[in-house]
Design a protein around this nucleic acid. Structure first.
Lengths: 335, 335
DNA sequence: GACCTTCATGGAAACGATTCCATCATAGTT
DNA sequence: AACTATGATGGAATCGTTTCCATGAAGGTC
């Protein structure tokens, strides 16, 4: 007695319903050659039975899943949310499923997630990497196609990346602040902010403003760490007049910390934040930001990883834009 | 000549390296019985070869993937971001991969994504549903375990859900506003806001405040639709003195629209928003909100869907909390 | 010593697709 | 008419696991 409840309908069922062999069904369904008449019969049978090919069987045979994995530090961060949306929308149009993992900016968790993906025979990964170059060696050796988004581990130049133009973005921001008369400009960075930090220092140097390592602070990924870093910065260096925040969580922390210490924006301190977020306009004053095309980064990365011909591709660098709103003002005379 | 580049290491390799049969290897690795001595040999061989069982083979044989799929309207929305984070963190501790899909609040896309998941033999789905009860019939008939999060399609009471206490949250907010003297209170809702809207009307009725259908507006999921709805509300009904926004995007739209029309908050109009977001404190005035445990909703839903015994479970309802900040004030005399 | 139970073990059959290859019919060429 | 080229077709192998089942050894009981 068969429980006829919900046995999955397989290609065999379709084959016998259409009175043909399984090979023929497979061929028809994947666009191979078949006589018009047979094709008709097969399609009718498939439709009638509501047949859905099992990805499991296909993947095993082809030893690939076609699936895309996405690794971000924190899906809660709107920047990564937008990036993910870009990936999702590109994958959707290709009908491919996307696995998402959050690493918490922890190389160990990242490695673990890569392991999971490898086990699942995922064959394409888009990652905002947290680990170093070695973390990615196993993945590459296993032959999966990797594209980095938003940043890359130092030294992993054999993997293509889709990046915002951090260098120019930072320079524009610093030049803008310098143009307003600021000299004591702080940089509040997060994990993986190397290129921005370098650009920050280079720009200061180019402008003839002496560097000052105490004006550079790096926070860990968490919100409280960002707040602590910002607060410490303001307290230790009351002479600073401007801050460049290297991400929306850092900007948020800077505003909160400034408010806590009764520093008015932009009168007492000017703030430029990386990443345009919806609430930047809601803030008072509205925040001057360096907008990054987060969604586009995700979309391009997905396109790239699906092309599969990623060996030796030049990096894709997308433009940023300084949106001047109200959080920066001229340096007022603190003698 | 073997290209020894990167052929995947299979259970056969381990078996022959350990000098045992494949069945024994499988048994050892999945905790079956084996003599201590054999177990040792197998484990050693597996470790030495860096063997990773292929999920493909296992899944096919077992006709299940163990994977979890997550369906949200918009991964860009921080509420869903936090919800996703909850799901991800629960799944991570179980070592299970998570597929994520964004429906854009479109039943058609939702149905399509469900189809993709079915094809992938996903067997657990957590969804913030957009479609109606029928959209979910195919999924259920195919035997997959579904848990709804945040809301449920009307009439789908056979599927367990993890929800915030919308009813009480709404009531608390409306009572708070009424306590401040407000009588013309508007409700700005989004897709799937049925329960909240009902609670809104019920509470008004209980307080003896006459309902007014023109004070209830429903927007589509997109940002511009939210803005249009909010703006229209303020323009058509200059007599309203308070707004309950049914989500963070709607709250954002309300603030923007109010500002555009030179309505001051809370002097001219009081605003309570569903969902506590980081920027609520950054706003000026800081926003009074009804906080929802978004991450917890996701986590609980994941726990539930992994228990698999979801048939006939009571809904999980999590508490909300009114956080009074500065966006609500007493009704000022407009005679 | 005969018998039964218990246990470790490995061969082989699934799982559901794709794809190689042999077969056969048909049409085209000489 | 014989032969070849072409194209449709289905059987069977394959992918990497798990799991059923048969086998045989070891140990216990009468």
């Amino acid at each position: 007695m068969k429980v006829s409840g919900h046995r999955r309908i397989t290609i065999k069922d379709v084959a016998s319903a259409a009175g043909v062999g399984v090979a023929t069904v497979s061929r028809v369904l994947s666009g191979g050659s078949a006589s018009p008449e047979t094709r008709e019969r097969v399609l009718a049978a498939a439709a009638q039975l509501d047949y859905r090919p099992s990805a499991l069987g296909r993947n095993l045979r082809q030893r690939r899943t076609g699936g895309i994995a996405l690794l971000v530090p924190d899906i809660t961060d709107t920047f990564y949310g937008r990036l993910a949306e870009g990936v999702l929308s590109c994958a959707r149009s290709a009908g491919e499923p996307v696995m998402v993992g959050a690493t918490g900016d922890d190389p160990e968790q990242e490695a673990e997630l890569i392991g999971t993906f490898l086990e699942q025979s995922v064959d394409r990964v888009i990652a905002v990497p947290s680990g170093d170059a070695d973390t990615w060696t196993p993945a590459l050796r296993a032959g999966l196609t990797v594209v980095f988004a938003h940043r890359r581990p130092p030294g992993r130049d054999d993997v293509p990346a889709v990046l915002a133009d951090d260098r120019l973005g930072t320079r524009t921001a610093v030049e803008y602040l310098a143009g307003l008369g600021h000299r004591r400009i702080a940089f509040l960075g997060g994990p993986g902010g190397g290129p921005r930090l370098r650009a920050f220092r280079d720009t200061l140097a180019a402008l003839g403003i002496p560097g000052d390592d105490e004006l550079v602070v790096t926070a860990r990924a968490a919100r409280d760490s960002a707040y602590a870093a910002a607060s410490g910065l303001f307290q230790h260096r009351p002479d600073l007049t401007a801050v460049v925040a290297g991400g929306n969580m850092l900007g948020e922390a800077a505003i909160l910390a400034a408010r806590e210490l009764d520093l008015r924006i932009p009168r007492d301190v000017s703030i430029v934040m990386f990443d345009d977020v919806p609430w930047a306009e809601l803030c008072s004053p509205p925040l001057t930001v360096i907008a990054q095309p987060a969604q586009d980064i995700g979309y391009r990365a997905a396109e790239l990883v699906m092309r599969e011909t990623t060996r030796r591709t030049r990096d894709t660098v997308l433009p940023t834009e300084l949106l001047v709103r109200g959080s920066c003002g001229p340096r007022l005379g603190k003698p």
